[in-house]
Design a protein around this nucleic acid. Structure first.
Lengths: 192, 192
DNA sequence: AAGGGGTGAGACAGGTCTGTCTATTTAGTG
DNA sequence: CACTAAATAGACAGACCTGTCTCACCCCTT
């Protein structure tokens, strides 16, 4: 049997996630979260001491799921170029999904601008995670310095493409970003 | 003499701009805006029928100033590569300014996720404006289709770099983005 | 059967939000 | 000076915000 405790907790996290994504962090009230999750207010406050900590939990949970996706993608191919290409293609599919509302982590950075705020830190962690993931993909085929720069550039392309997608230009954006990314990797590759 | 009407109105717009930039849109209350602008509440509501319309006005005002900056930059040089380089360098200086808090238009897209919302539309207008500005810079040296794609890619790099800058990596970000941008333009240039 | 932890429903406090209204004062113009 | 338009301070409404608290209930384990 599954624990009813974690069930409720997880259900709150997922309901809050859906609301934060669609409505925003400040614009989503506690009352709406507990109403849509169909739990009592005290149930929520027993699991999460404050709304901010719930937001952090939601972000960390989504970051974990995102990293799992990246790992799965990485296992599907071997060549760095192919792995990078699949990351961009995965983003393209994401952009086309009906409930796409942009990047929750970028939105968190926008709404919580103070770098010392726990929500800001959680969002920054996720972005650095992707960067390091791509850096480790590139490491075998270029110098450390190049891998750092190229990974940062690819991340910028992805973030920019996500913003374009939010404005309804996802298809063109991911096509252009993918091409630019592969050109950059090719130009920086150290031939074996 | 200057009209006292426009003076008040403009002062409210600029005070609201500073607050929206530092604190965010939803997190900034009307009471705080009128307190820092040192005007009565009715003065504000006489000029702007609602907070949302004030936000739109702030965004449009900043978009106008931004376009003026771009035009000034464009007049400083002639070759498209040089114009593009100056745009990136200008962003690098912006990232280093002490009160840099990321892109207000991107934040507006994050906080007002509904594409039909006037604030969303105002932010999207600004992004499309930059894209078209860069497209017109590139138009003389490449085909129309290439100019469209390259301009979109450059915009993605800029948006991504702005996000990195918000996380304290502005120097490295603009360096990498600038290099990638110039490489992309060089590769797409139609030799005269 | 008894105890206890998790849960539900909702009142409540104290504050903040947007937006409206009134009554008064200020400032520019003929 | 007189008229008008703008600005002022502040109360006010009604809704919403986060977070606390009480009390009853349910279900599981011992």
């Amino acid at each position: 049997m599954s624990s009813p405790v974690s069930d409720k907790r997880q259900h709150i996290v997922e309901t809050a996630y859906a609301l934060f994504k669609r409505v925003g962090f400040h614009a989503t009230g506690i009352d709406r979260i507990i109403a849509e999750a169909d739990v009592a207010k005290m149930t929520m406050y027993r699991h999460f001491p404050s709304k901010d900590e719930l937001i952090v939990e939601v972000l960390d949970h989504r970051a974990r799921r995102f990293e799992e996706q990246l790992d799965r993608l990485a296992r599907e191919s071997t060549a760095p170029e192919e792995k990078i290409a699949r990351i961009f293609e995965w983003h393209g599919r994401w952009f086309r999904s009906p409930d796409f509302h942009g990047c929750l982590f970028a939105h968190a950075l926008a709404e919580f601008g103070d770098p010392r705020h726990p929500v800001f830190k959680a969002a920054a962690r996720q972005k650095n995670g992707i960067r390091q993931h791509m850096q480790s993909i590139l490491a075998p085929v270029m110098t450390r310095g190049r891998a750092e720069s190229v990974a940062a550039t690819l991340l910028m392309l992805i973030e920019g493409a996500t913003l374009m997608a939010q404005m309804g230009r996802g298809d063109a954006a991911i096509r252009d970003a993918r091409k630019a990314a592969l050109d950059i990797v090719a130009a920086s590759r150290r031939p074996q």
